[in-house]
Computed example of a mutant assay.
Amino acid sequence: MTVEQLARTSPLARVSSRFAGLPDGVELAEEAFVAQAGLRVAPGGPAAAHVAERLGVALPGPARWVRGTTATVVWLGPDEWLVTDPAVAPADLEALLRAAVGPGAGAVVDVSAQRTTLRLRGAHARDLLATGCAIDLHPRVFAAGSAAQTVLGQAGVILLALDEHGTDYRILIRASFAGYLAAWLLDAATEFSTDPGAARADDSR
């Protein structure tokens, strides 16, 4: 008997085709199948130093994210980080981190299937987020390198600011909520379709 291998399908495979119809000033894309690992080590300890050496960047502090050689490291708690890397397989990322941490010095768990990632860009990116997110997203407060575990459109997300202008964000969302959030973003973006190409609102608001 021949067993057919199932094709790998992203959480947003059914909705991503609609992203091309977004109004000017809003760009949305899924960054699927990115290796992700939860990391718990004592901050400032030997294991944290070994992980930093392997990733090419020190583990970030509260409400921050950093980029290493290929990996991104997001602070989640006093001794907890999320490590993502689009350049390696999930098993390889987990193995690398486990080797760096060493036995008994911390914990590493592959969580690649837990979340997918949305990239939100454009002149209206911050305006769109502000319609469903309560945190202050002004670039003076939520600048490049900032990270927040927050609620967007009633869905829990990890939000990363990628630039200093409020025009580029990465949104990590649990796979089971990804379709809902994508639909919410598509619906909320229609607010900007009546004024395509318009300059963003005054940042002083």
Rank of each mutant, 00 (worst) to 15 (best):
G77A: 12
H165Y: 12
L93E: 10
H138E: 06
A107F: 10
G145Y: 06
P90D: 09
A134G: 01
T116F: 09
G38P: 05
L181S: 06
V15C: 06
R115V: 06
R18E: 15
G132V: 02
L22H: 04
L118Y: 12
V151P: 08
E80P: 10
D195N: 13
T70S: 15
E53I: 13
R174G: 02
A91P: 01
P43W: 00
D187K: 09
H138R: 06
W75L: 00
A188W: 01
L59T: 07
V101R: 08
L181F: 08
R64P: 07
A20T: 11
V109G: 07
G56N: 06
V74C: 10
G132Q: 07
R64A: 07
W65I: 03
R119K: 05
S10D: 11
V51H: 00
V41E: 05
L152T: 01
S112L: 10
G38W: 10
A71I: 09
A100H: 09
E164T: 15
P60N: 05
W184K: 05
T116E: 09
I158S: 14
G61K: 01
L96R: 10
G21S: 04
A58W: 09
G44A: 09
A155L: 09
A95E: 04
S17Q: 12
E53K: 14
A147N: 04
L160P: 00
S10A: 14
L55H: 01
P103I: 02
A198G: 08
Q114Y: 02
G45H: 11
V15F: 06
D24E: 15
T72S: 14
R8E: 15
A148G: 13
A147H: 02
V151S: 15
G56D: 07
R126V: 02
T9I: 15
E80T: 14
I158A: 12
G166H: 01
S204L: 14
L186Y: 07
T2E: 14
L128N: 03
R115A: 13
M1K: 12
V15K: 04
I158T: 15
V26N: 06
A20V: 10
V73F: 08
S10N: 08
G153P: 08
L6F: 06
A52I: 13
A147L: 12
G68D: 10
R67S: 13
D110Y: 09
E191Q: 15
A107D: 13
